[in-house]
Design a protein around this nucleic acid. Sequence first.
DNA 1: AAATGATGTTAAACTAGATTAACATTTTAC
DNA 2: GTAAAATGTTAATCTAGTTTAACATCATTT
Lengths: 194, 194
Amino acid sequence: MNTDSLLNYISKYIDLTEEEQAILLSKIKYRKYQKGQYILQQGDVCKISCFILKGCAKSYHIDKEGQEHIINFCIEDWWASDLGSLISQDPSDFNIQCIETTEVLQFTYNDQESLVNEIPKMERLFRKMLERALVSSQKRIVRNFSLTAKERYLYFKEQNPSIDQRVPQYMIASYLGMTKEFLSKIKSQLILDQ
Amino acid sequence: MNTDSLLNYISKYIDLTEEEQAILLSKIKYRKYQKGQYILQQGDVCKISCFILKGCAKSYHIDKEGQEHIINFCIEDWWASDLGSLISQDPSDFNIQCIETTEVLQFTYNDQESLVNEIPKMERLFRKMLERALVSSQKRIVRNFSLTAKERYLYFKEQNPSIDQRVPQYMIASYLGMTKEFLSKIKSQLILDQ
DNA sequence: AAATGATGTTAAACTAGATTAACATTTTAC
DNA sequence: GTAAAATGTTAATCTAGTTTAACATCATTT
């Protein structure tokens, strides 16, 4: 179990002693998912947070018309979870499905809460992570309202060149809130523009 | 300075001793804004968080076409701030303007950070607040993608009947990501439907 | 009570993006 | 290496929501 990238990630926010690191790691479980497998299925209660070591997953919602809406791509050094379901323990509205073979370090919400009690400064880590996630979520709402489909794609591509390469185009269209046909049109226009 | 509603709000998340409450209150400043006044202006660095005691403010972004996009309505027992600017100390992309005479309890980010150091369990409060805010922000993104304009309005009205009454209709349209003319059309259709 | 500004309505013309459907290309599995 | 599945493209048609513009109503000030 390679825990370096998790410890490295955490060290950007807080300093942990060797003992604290040991406590943290004692709560963690390594798991490997094959492409296509679900980390979470809509309707199930979310029990875990996953730190992605390697691979890629999509978290998405299926609406009442059966349409898939991608909320996030989860890649290396990101977290995959449904926070809403995790804290309420209500059934989730989201699926999290691996679109590549994906290796994660996971811990349960209970372990996360007891971790916070044993190592109070972990609270600060989670607070800082949540701050950043909230800011980026709010900014996304603004972009969805104020940018055209083309502008949204260009922004996405600029901010996430690696995801743009890595993920099928129809999923990017879903993430950006447009149809795959329209994104295809946008891309062919962009080539003509050059 | 009436601090009951703030203390009551906090008590839903954590228990503070009398001394801790005193420390908290020592960092807080009461302020009254008149209708039309700005708590924050786009381009300024956000220095404070405001807990709303009474009144209502809108936080909004003005895009490059000059269009206003309302991010949130801030009413009693909510917070008004631009977290992104507050944590980065970069110029804000948002305005927060009072649409009623508004009374707030405010504290600076520095005071908030030192508060967290003096009373570590405040970290938990902020974490829990952020968790809820992030969940609701993510759910809003999903709604914006998966619901029609009419459905978004009906959901808003159901969840926020008091804001629907209290705030001019054209601002609600902006918050919901549609034009005021289209919201007007939706509402007249809804009356016919009955 | 008249005037001004803010808010809300209606309707016609328009458009960004969706839908449908047929086809092309790439990847995967056997 | 070929069939099947997954992904991407193109184009015609359609529609949810925007734009524009004129008018109506309500609230506030003098």
